[in-house]
Amino acid sequence: MHELSVTESILSISTNHAQDANAARVTDIFLVIGELSSIVDDSVQFYWDIISQETICANAQLHFKRIPARFRCQDCNHDYTITEEMQPCPLCGSYRVSVIAGEEFYVESIAVEAE
């Protein structure tokens, strides 16, 4: 459900930057989303198709770059990627780990057509 407010933010950010660049139309929006940020791509796309109508961003293609969650073991310094359930260090079994990637949540760039 919070995908709607997230999608509204994406529209607002993209529109502002497109206007600043004197664009006629936005063709693509490139998003960077870490796996620890809980949003569903399909749901964002669903809202996007509705709320972007009749805006400078209408029909713009959304591109999701997903960044996997990565942890670093504090005991043996091993870096590892989490694909499904969170796990302790696969090398030494330690739970003393820290998150080093996976919380990204931003609009990286937009592609626009000029006037």
Binding site: S9, S12, I13, S14, Y106, S109, A111, V112
Partner: peptide, 17 residues
Amino acid sequence: MSTKTVTVVENIMSAND
């Protein structure tokens, strides 16, 4: 008509933040 890429790098939650 020309196309170009505009760098944004803005957190999606920035308005809320």
